[in-house]
Computed example of a mutant assay.
Amino acid sequence: MNRIIRNTQQETNMSLDDTSHPGRPGPDELVPSRYALKVGEIDVLVVSDGVLPLPTAMLAHNADPAVRAAWLHDMFLPPDAFDWALNVVVVRSGGKTILIDAGLGADPDLHLPRAGQLIKRLEAAGIDLASVTDLVLTHMHMDHIGGLLVDGVKERLRPDLRIHVAAAEVKFWESPDFSHTSMPPGFPDALRSAAKRFVNAYHNHLRQFDEEHEVAPGVVVRRTGGHTPGHSVVRLASAGDALTFAGDAVFAVGFDQPDWHNGFEHDPEEAARVRVRLLRELAETGEMLVATHLPFPSVGRVAVAGDTFRWVPAFWDY
């Protein structure tokens, strides 16, 4: 993969026209699906894998339905179901091209045709799958690993691809516990199946870590737990600048209602503690945040708002 953002007019496989201007969609898209930025000397590309339409109860199954409905009304969101964004990040640092999470892929039994767009959108951005040296998984829910299970994808990846994932995550999916989740029918079975298929297909590529691991210069993955036992976040830091990809530690509702339990959280109470700690850290440092399910491109910062927090989206840079 060539540099995501060029400092010269020299042509590369990933052109400035194709990636750095988020307002220019692909030929078959009405809206942009990728957004480029730099974190110091690290190149970053946020890529949309599409959207997941899910019941609004998934946002807060421990909240009073009337309170949840009021929040949705105040946010001008529909009361029953709305589209969750799916964001993936590509990072270039130290000669490595790193994919953080791999999107949903294709699961026809769940009828989610608007998600699973990652592979074609990487291609549209000029990113050859064979150029990816490392993959970091925030966790092994199917919307983070499914892109690698699409027919023909594995054959296009490097034979020496390194997949970095917390050891606790791999262990958990040997016999996953869904007793504290609150998911729509079909999702637990689909999650189990995707995780099993993924481990079977990629076990030789797994590079497991316990708590923290540096993948490339300035690219550090750290286990948080909560959402799943091995859930991790990835911090990019270079030249005094920093950005954290939070995976599923933070959802759109999590800033002003951080104690609301998401339906996909396997340990919702710990997930809430993880969320509050992370948001406090980011509010104190002023560092950037990107997360899987915040509205694309989800680049922004966190501010304190009384006892809770406030999401401050970045101004898009054209």
Rank of each mutant, 00 (worst) to 15 (best):
S193V: 03
K196G: 15
N200A: 15
Y202G: 02
H205F: 08
R207L: 13
R207F: 13
E212I: 08
E214W: 01
P217M: 09
V219N: 01
V219Q: 02
V219R: 01
R222L: 03
R222S: 15
T224V: 07
T224K: 05
G225Y: 03
G230P: 09
H231E: 08
V233G: 01
R235A: 11
L236D: 10
A237D: 06
S238G: 13
A239M: 06
D241I: 02
A242Q: 09
L243I: 01
L243Y: 03
T244Y: 07
F245S: 11
F245D: 14
V250I: 15
V250C: 11
V253D: 09
G254L: 02
G254E: 04
Q257P: 05
Q257G: 09
D259N: 11
D259T: 11
W260P: 08
F264R: 00
E265K: 00
A271K: 04
R273G: 09
R273Q: 05
R275Q: 10
R275A: 13
L279C: 07
L282K: 00
A283I: 00
E284G: 13
L289D: 11
V290W: 00
A291R: 01
A291E: 03
T292S: 15
T292L: 05
L294T: 03
V299E: 05
G300F: 08
A303D: 13
A303H: 07
A305D: 15
